[in-house]
């Protein structure tokens, strides 16, 4: 388990908003994550959450992702998880949410079709 610093960044890529999370998503900063996820919809584009560098996620982090899912549906914008790490996939499976989310392998797969 690498001691990766927690970080959230946002970028625009091919007509979509990509929110990149790093580190361990837990209660200590899941509110920030939640905010970043919800704010990403403001541009009216597809939203992708890059989870490739997330070493750990707990239910508060999953809750932020679920809120993103609900927001996307409400606003008719695509919301997808991008390249979730094995640790994230394991928790999604455990929460039986792995089939609920739109999961893509690369940011390019988001398609800027907002």
């Amino acid at each position: 388990m690498s001691a990766m610093a927690n970080a959230v960044t946002r970028e625009r890529s091919d007509g979509a908003i990509l929110v990149r999370l790093r580190g361990e998503v837990d209660l200590s900063w899941s509110q920030q994550v939640r905010r970043a996820v919800l704010d990403a919809f403001d541009a009216g584009l597809a939203v992708g959450i890059d989870l490739a560098d997330v070493a750990y996620i707990d239910s508060s982090g999953i809750a932020a992702l679920v809120e993103g899912l609900q927001q996307g549906r409400a606003r008719g914008q695509r919301f997808a998880l991008v390249a979730p790490s094995a640790a994230v996939r394991a928790v999604l499976e455990l929460a039986r949410l792995d089939r609920v989310f739109d999961i893509v392998d690369t940011p390019a797969a988001l398609g800027g079709t907002g």
């Binding site: 707990d58 239910s59 508060s60 999953i62 809750a63 679920v66 809120e67 928790v91 455990l94 929460a95 039986r96 949410l97 609920v100």
Partner: peptide, 18 residues
């Protein structure tokens, strides 16, 4: 229940499964 994210609900569901 699945997808329900009321406070603590998902966490307990995870504990329950693990």
């Amino acid at each position: 229940t699945l997808g329900e994210c009321r406070c603590g609900g998902l966490g307990i569901a995870l504990i329950d499964r693990i």
